[in-house]
Simulated scan of single mutants.
Amino acid sequence: MSFQPNETDVVILDGGLATHLEALGCDLRDELWSAKLLFENPAVIRQAHLDYFAAGADVATTASYQASFPAFVRRGRAREEARALIQLSVELATEARDEAGGGVIAASVGPYGAYLANGAEYTGDYDLDEDGLVEWHRPRWEVLAETEADLLACETIPSYAEARAIARLLEETPNVNAWVSFSCRDGDHIGDGTRLADCAALFAGNPQVVAVGINCTAPSDVKSLISHISGSPIVVYPNSGENWDAENHRWTGVADPVEFGAAAREWRDAGASFIGGCCRTTPEHIRRIRDELA
Rank of each mutant, 00 (worst) to 15 (best):
T173R: 13
E135V: 14
A201T: 04
L169E: 08
E148Y: 11
I12Q: 00
L24D: 03
S183W: 11
I226R: 01
E155Y: 11
A48N: 04
L37S: 06
S240F: 01
L50D: 13
E7W: 09
D198M: 10
W251D: 11
P158G: 01
C154V: 15
G261C: 09
P174D: 00
A18P: 11
G56V: 00
A23H: 12
R79V: 15
V176A: 08
A197C: 05
T62W: 04
W267S: 03
K223C: 13
S34N: 07
A200Y: 02
A272F: 13
P207S: 04
W244E: 06
A120L: 06
L88V: 09
P70W: 00
L152M: 10
P283K: 00
G102H: 02
I289E: 04
D9M: 09
A294Q: 15
H189F: 10
G113V: 07
N248P: 13
A178W: 07
W244C: 15
H285N: 07
V209K: 13
G213H: 08
K223W: 00
T281C: 03
E142Y: 00
Q87D: 12
L225I: 14
I86D: 02
V236P: 09
G113N: 02
S232A: 08
G277Y: 07
Y126E: 00
Y126P: 14
G15C: 02
A100N: 00
W136R: 06
R185D: 03
D188H: 15
D129E: 04
W251K: 11
E242Y: 07
L88C: 07
N41F: 03
R280Q: 12
A84Y: 08
I226T: 04
N243Y: 14
A55H: 03
C216L: 03
C184G: 12
P111M: 02
S34T: 09
P174A: 08
G110A: 01
F72C: 00
L293V: 10
F69Y: 14
W179D: 05
I226G: 01
A262L: 13
H189L: 04
